[in-house]
Amino acid sequence: MLTATGLSCVRGERCLFSGLDLAVGPGEWLHVQGENGAGKTSLLRILASLSPPAEGEIHWKNAPIRTLAEDYHRDMLFLGHHGAVKEELTPFENLTLAAKLDGAPLDETAALKALARFGLRGREDLAVRFLSAGQKRRVLLARLAVRQATLWILDEPFTALDVKAVDMLSGLIEEHVKAGGICILTSHQSMPLPNGRVLKI
């Protein structure tokens, strides 16, 4: 469903990768691996349509993502290095505001339920500033759970998570993929999930 042909990426004067092809269909997930600075994040940002590739084309459901624009955004969820979590706001506010921006407003009970699922019960009304790094990432996981998107693009989603949260996230991805979703992620950990493929750059 997501196909990319002949992608290349130039950063400054350095060519990070070129002639890269990939295709990921429903129920599959792709593990992008590579050394630090190999261009994993750049690749994910290109796939998420945040930056244009130097060469090549990306298609989503057989249409180039350049022309899809907002339609592609609706089907896709991208989580980058920075969590897009506002320090001054509470987890609850963060979650509901993000949902509104995504065009799918959440009601209060659904939001509270999602936060509780990721162990943030009792911290819904505490500014994120007062939470630990791991707890901040959990706010993001709650967003992952409530957002309806077919394609997940996750850049190092396991960073700063404890063992329990890692299991939760793996479970979430497994669920998503089983339900016919697609997931592309980078991680230094090995992922014990079925239907996975590895892309080394």
Binding site: E70, H73, H82, A84, D102, G103
Partner: peptide, 14 residues
């Protein structure tokens, strides 16, 4: 700095 801008660019609204 906190990545919200990326999410705004990728939001389904223009």
């Amino acid at each position: 700095a906190d990545g919200t801008l990326e999410q705004m660019v990728l939001a389904p609204s223009p």
